[in-house]
Amino acid sequence: MMAKQSLNKAACVRVLERMLVIRRFEEALVEMSGQKLFKSHYHLYIGQEATAATVVESLRSDDKLVTTHRNHGHVLARGADPGAAFAEILGRATGLNGGRGGTLHMSAPELGFLATSSVVGGCIGLALGGAFAQQRRGRGGVSVAFFGDGSLEEGISFESMNIAALWKLPAVFLCENNGAGATGSAKGGFPSSLIAAPRLAGIAESLAIASSQIDGRDVDAVHRAVSRGVASCRAGRGPVFIECITERWEGSKPMWPELSTGITDVALAWESERMPKKYRDWHVHQDPILLHIRKLLRKKLISRAAVLQLDRKVIARNAAARQFAIASPMPRGKTALDSVYA
């Protein structure tokens, strides 16, 4: 299969729909956390949606994926049922993983995901194993590791990239660097990365891994890099490293997520006079959804009416998914002892 460097109209709209699915899901989640429907720490993907929503365009159904503590966007982008995803986070029996994993370990093995670890760096080693299995299978499948910049602080990331490079494994190391603007634990925010290398891609380059550094909010840039990288992996040329850079979303700076930029209003993509001053930078330069809509409108690939209609459809489905989860039963306590072994 030849890598297509640009997305056609239908694909552009699919990517937009995926981004909206993720955004509406997570906006609801913040409310649900406020309502004490679940009581655990959680991590949002808001601001990074363009990456997951676009990466999956280059993947086949037999490809493997591994994600982290910040997994909602990846799992939903790959097509997991939002109702089952909500249910998982609420610990319901109908959850993607029967309520056993929760937000930190949500996984959809039927869609190619390996186990979701929230041990920083854990995903990279597991994805290496996925790539090894793909190479043994010999059908051109790849294994994608989605990980944060912080994963590169862990030794396992270096060891894994070294093995992948030595054995020419079809691994896509997809680093989502959301470090810009993060506050860090010393300032009362969530830990952010501490890496001496001036460019993260330089770490992979030192192992002779083909690397690129792109704007993670830009659907076209993500697609160009990922489609090329995946094609190279499929052709047996070894691993690739792609650094997708995004600014840390305001709401993910404090220890607990906050809907600090409000509920997304897609019409702000064209009604710029209505933009609230306070988060103008987010609405004009950061929000990948508004950026993508503006580009599609400019290229006449979608109409304003179609954007609003698509968003309404996503919102309605999201509301139904949320209802499904809330109405779902909890698992019975003693089933905790079931299926420790296969």
């Binding site: 610990g91 309520g99 929760g102 370990h105 909890m330 306590g333 905790a336």
Partner: peptide
């Protein structure tokens, strides 16, 4: 704690 990994869901966690 019983010999199972620790589940997330509240009733399961309560059970262990």
């Amino acid at each position: 704690r019983p010999d199972v990994p620790t589940p997330f869901s509240r009733p399961l966690e309560d059970f262990v």
